[in-house]
Design a protein around this nucleic acid. Structure first.
Lengths: 194, 194
DNA sequence: GTCTATACGGCGATAGAC
DNA sequence: GTCTATCGCCGTATAGAC
């Protein structure tokens, strides 16, 4: 008997092709280009079939978002988050494609109310995973500023590279190199390369 | 004789109503809700008239963007940028509506190629105005870290509140209060309230 | 110069055919 | 499980009223 696929199992090759096509479309042309026809063309299926798996575009966006969040968490685990959490975080937030996807989902969340809570949950899940790891190794660091808490550091180390990538996408650059140098000098001091 | 208006002078009441309606629509429902029909309804004119002034939606977006950038520069000048540039910058980047508009324009820039360079120019114009002011007063601050340059500081002070507002829009909050406390303690130290 | 009316193809969503 | 037909809204183009 052939393996069971279908909408319930969420494991068919068709489904995977649709999710891949949607993510590529998001990165290449932005969320406004994600249409049933466009996704279907890129995935090699008919528009009606895409709509069969995802009755509304919101469901499609949410499926791509959840898959991306799961992958980010797994990638962080593999990236040695336990040994050098600050560098793992810095490297994670420096991902260009990740920043571009985040922008699309933030914009989507702003005017599709079904998307907003899912973006929030995904973001908080990643942030808290990072925060847990950094808190666990916090005793290693010799920091003189009592206001520099794990939460503040995790936030700034996430926000700076994210904003740099967003700005680079439209050609801005003022202060980028200097901000990166500032953070990397900090990392060299508190979490030297092994 | 009645005052001269018209598309060349860009000063008619109709034009102002269209730009106001577009900005409100961007904030309330995101750029995907900016349609000729929607703008026209909010501005109290016909869709064809909006299209007369702005033959494509790109031109409409660009007009709103330029107006917003001009106003931001003027607001910064009025906000005592010369006396306390770091606090003026911090207050400027903490503007909630400004962050929401920026998000919409960044997302637009990502998949409407005519918009990207205009977003870039506007962002760089503001950033460089801030950088000039901070550089001019840089000698006042007693900073021990040689990597903490005016450009790095301006970037971080812009990026942190911007990202906080973006994340708040979809319900994330982890690290926000701590990051704000960190920055405000820094400001109290290097640029005490007058 | 300012503004209105209308037509066209593409879109998301829905119902239902096969 | 797969796909088609249809509906109302969209951006855009155009023709013309005042």
């Amino acid at each position: 008997m052939a393996p069971r696929h279908g909408v319930g199992s969420r494991s068919s090759a068709t489904l995977a092709a649709i999710l891949r096509a949607t993510e590529r479309l998001l990165l290449d042309e932005g969320y406004a280009a994600v249409t049933y026809r466009g996704v279907a063309t890129r995935a090699g299926v008919t528009p009606g079939l895409v709509q069969y798996y995802f009755p509304g575009l919101d469901e499609l966006f949410i499926a791509v978002l959840r898959r991306g969040t799961d992958r980010a968490i797994q990638a962080l685990d593999r990236a040695g988050g336990a040994e050098q959490p600050l560098r793992a975080l810095w490297s994670y937030a420096n991902d260009k494609a990740g920043s571009a996807l985040l922008l699309e989902f933030m914009a989507l969340a702003n005017h599709r109310k079904a998307i907003a809570p899912v973006v929030g949950e995904g973001g908080e899940r990643v942030r808290k995973a990072l925060l847990d790891t950094v808190t666990r190794t916090w005793h290693r660091y010799r920091l003189d500023d009592p206001e520099l808490t794990p939460a503040a550091l995790v936030f700034v180390l996430s926000a700076v590279p994210r904003m740099i990538h967003l700005e680079q996408a439209f050609g801005a650059h003022t202060g980028h190199a200097e901000a990166v140098a500032l953070v990397e000098r900090f990392l060299d001091r508190v979490e030297p390369r092994s």
